[in-house]
Simulated assay, not measured.
Amino acid sequence: MVSELRARTLTWAEADPARHPFAMDADAARELTGHVEPLLPGADVGPADRWEWLATVTEFLVGRYGRWACGWNWSVGEGDTDGGIVEAWCCAHDSMTAPDETAPLVVEGLRQWRGWLEDLAQRFTDLAPPDTTLAAVDRRHWERACTRLVTVVADRTHAESGWYGHCTQVLGWFLACHGIDEDRAREIVENAVGGRFGSWIAPDTAVVDEVSTRFAGGVGGSR
């Protein structure tokens, strides 16, 4: 699948709910389900062909709602893409059955992904630095923010396969949300995490503290 359809490559500008209005009540969910169902193959389609149909659904959702919607199937553990938070969908291999059974899973996956983005946006607001220059913010503020974000991502992903990829993305999103250039934010996070997290295991307190300290040091050096 091309990078434009992979949630791993989303920037915060693309994912930020404030920039991309979205509402999904029961009526809207039924309507969307009706649009998705004709895009899906029959239950007898071979596993290798399901990826093509998966891309078709993702392209439709992205065209309708914006690129943020490509995360609808970023499921927990070893799904279509490792290390996400969506629990309604597993993967094209196991979740695609009859169209009338599969379409509601797509819609629920989208709702779960959007809910997560909205949760993150609120957390980013709650963890916002004081109204001063970033370099002047007490490093303990950045340490606390990093610790809380790592903890919540580990929880939502169940720290399963590849969870740390989304964790580093969320830390970068947090910095970008608060005015740090995307490339600089990526550098700060890479230097802070640097292989300290692994699949199938939530980081212990000592590791999180180390990462948070390095994270704060990197932000403190930003201008």
Rank of each mutant, 00 (worst) to 15 (best):
M1Y: 07
V2E: 15
V2Y: 09
S3R: 13
L5V: 00
L5R: 05
R8P: 04
R8S: 13
R8W: 07
T11Q: 05
T11C: 03
P17I: 07
H20R: 08
H20G: 01
M24W: 00
D27Q: 14
A28Y: 01
H35Y: 10
P38K: 08
P38I: 10
L40V: 06
L40D: 12
L40S: 02
G42R: 11
V45G: 10
D49W: 01
R50V: 01
E52V: 13
E52W: 06
L54Y: 13
L54C: 00
T56I: 13
V57Q: 07
G63N: 09
G66S: 11
R67Q: 12
C70D: 02
T81W: 12
T81C: 03
D82I: 03
G83Y: 00
G84M: 05
G84I: 08
E87W: 09
A88R: 04
C91M: 01
D94Q: 12
D94F: 13
M96L: 11
P104I: 07
L105T: 04
V106S: 01
R111V: 14
R114N: 03
G115Y: 09
W116I: 02
W116N: 10
W116V: 03
E118Y: 06
D119P: 00
D119E: 13
T125H: 13
D126R: 13
T132S: 11
T133R: 15
T133F: 00
L134E: 02
A135M: 04
D138W: 04
H141Y: 07
W142R: 02
R144D: 14
C146S: 12
C146R: 09
T147R: 12
R148K: 13
V150R: 02
V150K: 03
V152R: 12
V152L: 08
V153C: 11
A154C: 06
D155V: 01
D155M: 00
R156S: 03
A159Q: 10
E160N: 09
H166S: 07
H166T: 04
Q169D: 08
V170A: 07
L171N: 06
W173E: 02
F174G: 08
L175S: 10
A176E: 15
A176F: 01
A176K: 01
C177G: 09
C177W: 01
H178T: 00
H178V: 00
I180L: 14
E182L: 14
I188K: 11
V189E: 02
V189C: 07
E190Q: 10
N191D: 14
N191T: 14
A192L: 07
V193M: 02
G194Y: 06
R196I: 02
G198D: 13
A202W: 04
A202Y: 06
D204W: 06
A206T: 14
V207W: 05
V208F: 01
E210H: 08
E210F: 05
R214V: 06
F215W: 05
A216P: 09
G217M: 00
G220S: 14
G221A: 15
G221P: 00
S222C: 15
S222A: 15
R223W: 11
